[in-house]
Simulated scan of single mutants.
Amino acid sequence: MEGERVPWRVLELYSGIGGMHYALKESGIPAQVVAAIDINTTANQIYGHNFPDTALWNKTIEGISLEDFNKLSIDMILMSPPCQPFTRLGLQGDVADLRTKSFLYILDLLPRLRRLPRFILLENVKGFESSSARERLVKTLVECGYTFHEIMVSPTSVGMPNSRLRYFLIAKISTENFISSKMDSVFGGLDQCSEEEKLQRLLKLKLRYFTPREVANLMGFPQSFSFPEQISTRQQYRVLGNSLNVVVVARLLQLLVS
């Protein structure tokens, strides 16, 4: 659109091993990650190994001031807040869980930014959609004038052999609403089997563990993605388990900015 600056300046919160960054590259959107923020030192080693030119802040989000965020002058926020407070197998502490503190800080900070980011994409586990944290998120977005759309997506919907249902929210400052039919056409055919049914089917098969490289392939990471030599196999599995599907996020980013 006229008057827009390109490339867009992107802030990657809870950056992990760079799944959002890879999705941004996969989407073809003209954008630059101006800062990535995470406190996981192992994940940061991997992120820095693959994106050495990106400013990586190894600090807590709530330790970053409003002025620091304003100086970044961002157009887009990509984030995948800690999922443990919302997972069905966890304690479901929701907003009472200390791991949600940084996310609540973001929601408090967003309306006070000198310049609101035009686009926001958030990923989390199934269970987030019924949480108090989600209610606060939606309330904040509405108050700030965002249009948003929520969807549950598994990578199987985009042809990836990876059944991993996740919650996504995409939001933008716009006078036009998202078109639900367009979202359904992109992510049609979502696998509706319960996790228990899937597990029972898998138990009947003779299986082996995927290697970390195979897991990364299933999650859509490009062949250029690699681990530093000092990262153990156990650590590789752990950080991949906390990451997201690159192809799904890339599709959502394309929808978000179209």
Rank of each mutant, 00 (worst) to 15 (best):
G93H: 04
L169S: 09
L11G: 02
R118M: 06
F128M: 13
L113V: 08
L218C: 11
I64Q: 14
G220M: 03
I170E: 00
L98E: 15
N177Y: 14
K126R: 15
L253E: 02
P7M: 05
V33H: 08
C193L: 09
A96C: 06
P161D: 10
I179G: 07
F178R: 04
L169R: 08
L199R: 14
A43I: 14
G159W: 04
R136A: 11
A43E: 03
D53N: 15
S102F: 04
L122T: 05
L252A: 05
L255M: 15
P30M: 14
I37A: 02
K172W: 07
I106F: 13
A216S: 05
D108W: 08
G93A: 05
A133E: 10
C193H: 10
E12V: 13
I74R: 00
L107D: 04
A36C: 09
R115Q: 11
V142H: 09
L165F: 10
G127T: 03
E214Y: 09
F86T: 01
I17P: 00
K126P: 06
G63M: 06
R164P: 01
F128S: 00
L218M: 11
I231S: 07
E26D: 13
V248I: 02
C193Q: 07
T140R: 02
N177C: 14
L199H: 14
D68H: 12
G159P: 04
F178G: 01
M219F: 07
L78W: 00
I120N: 02
D38C: 03
F51W: 10
A36E: 05
M183W: 13
L199G: 08
N124Y: 10
V158A: 10
V215P: 02
C83K: 01
D94G: 05
P82I: 04
C144V: 01
D75I: 00
I179A: 12
I61Q: 06
T211P: 02
E176T: 13
E62D: 12
L240S: 00
I46W: 01
R9P: 00
S15Q: 08
D75T: 02
S102W: 01
Q254C: 07
A171K: 01
A31F: 00
K71Y: 10
R208P: 07
Q45G: 06
M183V: 12
L89D: 09
Q230E: 14
E214T: 06
